[in-house]
Amino acid sequence: MLNYVWIGLVLIGVLAAASTDIYDASTNRYKNGEPFELQYDSTGVGTGTISYSREYYDKFYGVQIDYPDTISYRAALAGNSINISTDEESPEIWKTVAKTDDNSKQITAKVLSRQGSEMTILLPTTSLVKTKAVLDAVISYSELAVKISLGLIGVMAFWLGIMKLAEDSGMIKIIARILKPVMVRVFPDIPPDHPAIGAMIMNMAANMLGLNNAATPLGLKAMEHLESLNPHKGTATNAMITFLAINTAGLTLIPATAIAIRAALGSKDPTIILMTSFFGAGLATIAGIAAAKILQRLKIYRIKDQPDDSTPESGGSN
């Protein structure tokens, strides 16, 4: 199914980008080639501020924006071009123009005429906005993926080291024994004293305490143990899917990130969500386990007898 999700994300993304761009071009959303009139007030040699009224902007682009009556920016004149510094708060279209122009917050426009403080400029041609954004995303997200992966090396090594210690000393077995009654029910396919059980418990405990740095390495260690019990390499086992369903529900005692953001934004009671998100994630966990258990019986999700292999090229569409 991950196949279909992947195809869906990529194709829907590209199609949406292309159709938005075609629509924008046909309606000339960015008013390419139309002169824009504004006020230029010099504040020094080659520097000044530009300003225009909200009404003019609304009429020019045929939109309605929620802004003060006068919009102004710092600008720098150089020859017959003008550099306008926009910011995060700029109206949507100007922000897009700036970003598509040279991927910064600067708009470089051509000065068509200037009489006193009256100036007419030609904004840079803006087209294929979404397609360009998709192209940028491909590159930046590929880099991000590598950055995340490599960033894991340190903590990963540390926790794998600690886990090895715990396995060699028999600590993991002791941990597994404590929660045996629960784990046997949730993971009936795994022998109760298998190290996978201990690692999964460690992962869940780390998640509960909000220790994200530790949870991922411990979870991956658990996956390694689960994989050692997998007769069909390359295909997920029932236990793995149940384990992941629990992980994707994200049950935690302290949703630390959400609380921190709430506090930073001046909430009177940032921790008010402790109970509510525990409730939400608790329901999600139960639903995840139930869904995994029910779906594994469905015919389409049964493991087909495929030759043991681990190369994606050999197909398999689930």
Binding site: M1, L2, V5, E227, G234, T235, A236, I241, L295, N318
Partner: peptide, 10 residues
């Protein structure tokens, strides 16, 4: 693992 069966659905 690339054959994820019902993992996405769950």
């Amino acid at each position: 693992i690339y054959r994820t069966r019902h993992a996405v659905a769950a």
